[in-house]
Design a protein around this nucleic acid. Structure first.
Ligand code: MN
Ligand code: MN
Length: 527
DNA sequence: GAAGCAA
DNA sequence: TTGCTTCAACGCATG
DNA sequence: CATGCG
C-alpha cells in the first residue's frame, strides 16, 4: 500500500529487524508508544488508522498534566505490526538505536477521526496499560520552511489527569509493557542519557497547598508577572529590571537612562562610526559575544550600511545617529560599543588614530601615565595634537584626530613606525608585540587598532567588567596617580560631567592636522 | 535578545 | 513546544 | 601552516 512507501524507503530490511509490514485490512484501533533512544531520546506515539499507524515523534514524551503541551512531530506512517516491535535498530540505519515498547492498547476517537485528522484536531480516549483517558492532538500553524508537521499532544481534563506536583508517568513507569525490561537491558549498554538530577516534584504535598481554583495554565507563558516593558527615550525596553552588573545591582533600564543622561557627551564620538558591539544579554558576568553585522529583528534606530570592502566586494556596517540608537543597543544587550577610526563620510581615510597603552604584568599605574605623556610629547614633536582617555580597563588610549586624508595603510604604517621607535628608544619600558612573554614588566603599545577593520572602545562606552566602568576622556592635566583607568563608572560619571560642563576633548573637532608627509608637518585651526 | 533549526 | 546554536575579524608574531 | 593575541 502506498501509505507505507515512505516507511519502506527509509529502511533496509536486510539490516534491520523492524517489520517490513503490510497495510492491515482490519478496522480495530490500536495504539502504541515506543520509547526510542536514537540520536535523541524521544517517544513515538502511534495511532492505528486506515490500516497503518499514524505516527508522531514526541520529543519529551507524553505528560499526564492537563493542558501541558508536548511537541509531536508528525512522521511517516508505520505498519500496524510495528506497534509490537521492541529491540535494537543497527547503528547507521534509519532510526538506529533502541526501541522499548512503552505502552500499548486501544484508542477511540471522539467524532470522525478522518475529519479530525484532516482538520488537525483529534480528540480521543486511550485505553492502554499506562496511558488512559482523553487526549488531544492539535496541528500547529505551518511555519515557513517546515519539513514535517508539528502537532501538540495534550492531556485533557479528566479523572486520569495529574497535577504538576504528581510524579511523572515517564519516570514512574519506565519499563517495557511487552517484556518488562528497562531500555538498558534491551540495548545491552548503559543508558546514553546523562543522569538527570532529581529536579522538582519533591514537595511535601501536605501543607501550604495552593488554593484549588488557582491552577496556573500549566507553565503557560502568560503568567501575570515580570514580562513588563518600559519606554526610555521612546525606545521600548524589555526586562528593565534585569541586573547587568551584579555587584552594583545596575539594571538594564538604569543603563539606558545613563546613556540618555550623557547623550550630548557620547553622541559626538559615536554617530556615524561603524560599530563593533559586545553583547551580554544576560549580564556582564555571563556569556558575551561580538557582533558587527545586522541581525534578524534589528531595531530601526540602528542603521545598516552596505559599504565597499577593503578589496573587491561589499560589507555591512552598523551605526547609530541618535540616543534612540544607543538605547536600542542597550535593549539588545550591548554592554560595550567599539568604533572605527573613520566615519561613514569617508571610511577609507581615518579621522582618528589611536595608541592603545596596555600595561603588562607588574607595571604600575604611574608608568602608564608616563607612557601616555611620552606618546603625547613625541606626537607634539611632529606637530600633532593628541587627547587621552581611560579605557575602563587597565590602560589608556591616546587619540590623534586627523583631517581624513591618508589611507588606512599609511595610517597604520605611521603608527607602527611611531610605536616601534618608542620601543626602540626604551625597550625596557615598551614593546609593540602582543606576545605575553614580551609584555611582562612593559607597556604594550598596540598600534594595530589603526586598522580599517579594527576598533577601539568608544569614549563614554561602558565596559563589561566588574564595577561598570566607563571609558572616559580626560584632560592631560588630570592624568595623575589618583586617577584610575577604571575609576569612572556608570555610578559616578554623571557627577563628573555635571562638574565639568564641557568635554575635555571639546577642542578635538576643530583640530585640523594630517600625518607628517615624511617632512612637512602642519597644524592649524579649522575655518 | 532574537531567530533559526531540530527534535 | 522547548532547547540549542549563532551572533567578527585581521595583522602580526611565533613554533 | 596553525595558534595566540588584542
Ligand atoms: Mn523514533
Ligand atoms: Mn587596551
Amino acid at each position: 500500500m502506498a501509505k507505507l512507501a515512505p516507511y519502506r524507503a527509509k529502511r533496509d530490511f536486510t539490516k534491520t529487524s523492524e517489520p517490513a509490514g503490510k497495510a492491515a485490512r482490519r478496522t480495530g484501533f490500536s495504539f502504541a508508544v515506543q520509547k526510542h533512544e536514537a540520536s535523541r531520546l524521544h517517544y513515538d506515539f502511534r495511532l492505528e488508522l486506515d490500516g497503518v499507524l499514524k505516527s508522531w515523534a514526541v520529543a519529551k514524551g507524553p505528560s499526564l498534566v492537563k493542558g501541558e503541551k508536548r511537541l509531536a512531530v508528525h512522521v511517516e506512517d508505520h505498519p500496524v505490526d510495528y506497534g509490537d516491535f521492541e529491540g535494537t535498530i543497527p547503528e547507521g540505519q534509519y532510526g538506529g538505536g533502541t526501541v522499548l515498547l512503552w505502552d500499548r492498547g486501544t484508542w477511540e476517537p471522539e467524532g470522525d477521526p478522518h475529519e479530525g485528522y484532516d482538520k488537525g484536531r483529534l480528540t480521543f480516549r486511550l485505553d492502554g496499560e499506562k496511558l488512559r483517558g482523553t487526549w488531544h492532538l492539535v496541528r500547529m500553524a505551518k511555519r515557513p520552511r517546515e519539513r514535517q508537521e508539528s502537532w501538540l499532544l495534550i492531556k485533557a481534563e479528566d479523572a486520569f489527569a495529574r497535577s504538576e506536583d504528581d510524579t511523572d508517568i515517564l519516570e514512574e513507569a519506565p519499563l517495557s509493557v511487552k517484556t518488562g525490561r528497562a531500555i538498558e537491558e534491551i540495548s545491552g549498554k548503559p543508558s546514553k542519557a546523562a543522569p538527570k538530577k532529581r529536579a522538582a516534584a519533591k514537595k511535601s504535598a501536605t501543607k501550604a497547598d495552593p488554593p484549588k481554583g488557582a491552577t496556573r495554565r500549566a507553565s503557560s507563558s502568560a503568567t501575570a508577572k515580570g514580562d513588563h516593558r518600559v519606554d526610555v527615550a521612546g525606545v521600548s525596553i524589555s526586562h528593565p529590571d534585569r541586573v547587568l552588573w551584579e555587584e552594583q545591582g545596575l539594571t538594564k533600564q538604569e543603563l539606558a537612562e545613563f546613556y540618555v543622561g550623557i547623550a550630548d557627551w557620547i553622541l559626538p564620538h559615536l554617530v556615524d562610526r561603524p560599530l563593533t558591539l559586545i553583547r551580554c544579554p544576560s549580564g556582564s558576568a555571563k556569556k558575551c559575544f561580538v557582533q558587527r553585522h545586522s541581525w534578524a529583528g534589528l531595531s530601526d534606530f540602528i542603521h545598516r550600511s552596505m559599504v565597499s570592502d577593503d578589496k573587491d566586494g561589499k560589507q555591512e556596517v552598523l551605526t547609530v545617529r541618535d540616543i534612540q540608537g544607543v538605547v536600542a543597543l542597550v535593549q539588545s544587550g550591548v554592554l560595550e560599543m567599539h568604533i572605527w577610526g573613520a566615519t561613514l563620510q569617508d571610511l577609507e581615510r581615518p579621522d582618528r588614530l589611536i595608541f592603545d597603552l596596555d600595561p603588562g604584568e607588574g607595571v604600575d599605574w604611574p608608568q602608564v601615565i608616563e607612557a601616555a605623556t611620552a606618546v603625547r610629547e613625541r606626537l607634539k614633536g611632529m606637530g600633532l595634537v593628541s587627547f587621552v582617555k581611560t579605557t575602563g580597563g587597565k590602560g589608556l588610549h591616546v587619540v590623534v584626530p586627523l583631517t581624513p586624508r591618508a589611507a588606512w595603510k599609511d595610517a597604520l604604517a605611521f603608527t607602527r613606525g611611531f610605536a616601534e621607535a618608542m620601543a626602540a628608544d626604551e625597550p625596557d619600558r615598551y614593546t609593540t608585540t602582543s606576545v605575553k612573554q614580551e609584555r611582562e614588566g612593559r607597556i604594550f603599545i598596540d598600534y594595530l587598532r589603526n586598522n580599517r577593520e579594527a576598533s577601539a572602545v568608544a569614549p563614554y562606552s561602558t565596559r563589561s567588567r566588574p564595577g561598570a566602568p566607563v571609558a572616559t576622556p580626560v584632560s592631560w592635566d588630570e592624568l595623575t596617580p589618583d586617577l584610575r583607568p577604571n575609576g569612572f563608572t556608570v555610578e559616578n560619571l554623571p557627577e563628573r560631567l555635571r562638574r565639568l560642563k564641557k568635554d575635555p576633548w571639546s577642542d578635538l573637532p576643530s583640530i585640523d592636522q594630517t600625518l607628517p608627509e615624511a617632512k612637512s608637518t602642519r597644524r592649524k585651526a579649522k575655518r
